[in-house]
Nucleic acid binder design. Structure first.
Lengths: 339, 339
DNA sequence: TACTAATCTGTTATCGATAACAAGACTAAC
DNA sequence: GTTAGTCTTGTTATCGATAACAGATTAGTA
């Protein structure tokens, strides 16, 4: 009489029995331990093959305390930066033999703490938080106290774990490009201020203008969406002395361009527009968008590497590298109209 | 002498001890079992609070055989459909109290089987495969034999688990819109043939033209990328009798529009262009893109619901619903130029 | 030869929870 | 007052692996 083995997945002891060895030996073979005879190893592997055995990661995780899984928190909006960062994390994690557990959240303190909580409870070995924490920072820190954590947005005050792109130089590149073309000054459509990337772009833009001795016009606020860019564009397009606009994301830049076009202002003849990100569609805007490339996919990858360092070598000092962005000049920028 | 309790996360027995009850009682309280005295419950919850206890999901999964995690396989390319589907899955899973484990793959049989394998080994309760399986179907089926699985691309031959959008009517909507404007026929830039969505769009386009008694021109093949749309556009733009183009995705449509614009063909005065998907940027194309809306986020959500039904009620019959797409008319379509 | 060291394999305890069973206290019904 | 039934709690076995220890065999060396 069998013991309801009917449809159960084979366990290690089934393999052991089939190979005529102990479970421990099977474990050793599968973990590539050195001291196993070649013959035994072959017998075990044959049994594994025959039974279609797969090691149960849950059981492994329980006894080793390591799940080889990392958790990722992103915001629940489908924009380019989110998805390409997630993709980068995914790819890098896979290469390193880690699985990825992802959770989305809104911007609220409650949402973020819940998201992090969930992942911790799932037993992840480390965490990547790709969202501005702000007031949630303190509670999140408590929850993640025992777990290596990397944040990709600096607003959290967890700055020692930050991984990002050099926003300052991104903006300086763009601003100087426009000033270099002869524009008197550069207007700015910024991202939502709770994102540290947006905040530091705003900041750097101001400083770049000041440094060049130009007038600093008031900024307009967007929320990363093309709609918000469109609304800003409707305002800027009505102001005749606006000849150059730096938009904090390509997606908003599409909205700005649309609004300007509807108002009859030609790009780049009347107004120059520069975006940031270099999304796939930027080259296919009308006109093709001049922008500052920063690879979110790469940021995701680096976040993973940084995290794995912390996981596998917790004692060491970890410096956070910053990546240099590059300016991609297309057709949306030109010298200002001669007066 | 303590037993290296130094920095260990508290376990259930720690809570039990603190509350002066057995571990089983703690378990019962946390699982909302009915037969626990109010007083006891309060004492347990107080201890949980005090120690900052979180239930270990790994241990639960091991003993219950359920991880409350679902696995998602997507392709490793960052396009709109992938990311919004993933987002939909994410959100729906969270609402249902499930975690999401995501893996990306390439299109190869090996890549796909490995991806699925990984997830199975991670111990997911169910699988969503958002990639065309094709020849991988057989091996994947073997691997997922014991696990509920939903595919969102029909090319797999696992059709009984399919969840999707009615591609036929999407294309008919678009084609008839163009014919209704007076175009003699409609050209088509298709997606990669290994995607069943692309294949059925191609098919439906042909049949729609035949049914209307129109000439069926040869189709051009793209790969979902804006670049491929651009290349197709460079060809179509040189053919003076092309006045209406149905593009199998909005992202490719951006490329087509760019190419046509560069060749001096005005949209929609000279050529009408219709996309499919209604991505966020479609409304901000130049001109705003007429397209057929189909919500990938929604497809993701429905895939989850469908999967959870299978998980929680394996015996029942599960019919796969199909969603009706809607035509969104913007500015990229108009009657053909009068000759 | 004898004694140490290195290889190989097996046994037992353990990770942190839940399932299944058991037992005591109390209530209800005859 | 006994018996059965409900409510509440505890005890033990178990999920599937690995760690730690231990025993047996072989090899190496004084």
């Amino acid at each position: 009489m069998q013991k309801r083995q009917f449809n159960r997945a084979p366990a290690m002891r089934d393999v052991a029995q089939a190979a005529g060895v102990s479970a421990q030996t099977v474990s050793r073979v599968l973990s590539d331990h050195p001291n196993v005879q070649e013959v035994t190893k072959r017998r075990v592997l044959a049994a594994v093959e025959e039974l279609g055995y797969r090691r149960n990661n849950t059981a492994r995780a329980l006894v080793t305390g390591l799940s080889r899984t990392i958790g990722v928190v992103t915001l629940a909006t489908n924009n380019y930066s989110r998805s390409s960062l997630a993709l980068g994390v995914e790819l890098a994690a896979r290469e390193a033999g880690y699985a990825v557990n992802s959770v989305t959240s809104n911007l609220s303190t409650q949402g973020l703490t819940e998201a992090v909580s969930r992942l911790v409870q799932q037993g992840v070995d480390g965490l990547i938080i790709a969202a501005p924490l702000q007031e949630a920072a303190r509670r999140v820190r408590e929850i993640t106290a025992r777990i290596p954590t990397v944040t990709t947005d600096g607003s959290s005050g967890m700055s020692d774990e930050l991984v990002g792109v050099d926003q300052e130089s991104a903006v300086v590149l763009a601003t100087n490009h426009l000033l270099g073309l002869g524009h008197r000054t550069v207007w700015h459509v910024s991202g939502p201020p709770e994102w540290s990337d947006a905040a530091s772009r705003l900041d750097s833009w101001r400083r770049a203008l000041e440094k060049a001795g130009r007038e600093v016009p008031p900024e307009l606020h967007g929320d990363w969406s093309p709609e918000s860019g469109y609304r800003s564009g409707l305002i800027l397009g009505r102001m005749p002395d606006v000849t150059a606009i730096l938009v904090a994301s390509d997606e908003m830049a599409f909205g700005v361009i649309r609004a300007l076009t509807e108002l009859g202002r030609r790009i780049p003849e009347d107004v120059s527009v520069v975006g940031i990100d270099d999304i796939d569609l930027a080259a296919y805007a009308t006109p093709p968008l001049t922008t500052v490339r920063q690879s979110f996919e790469d940021t995701g990858r680096r976040a993973v590497f940084h995290l794995l360092e912390q996981i596998e070598n917790p004692e060491a000092e970890h410096t956070h590298q910053v990546v240099e962005p590059t300016l991609v000049i297309r057709k949306s920028t030109a010298p200002p109209p001669s007066v």
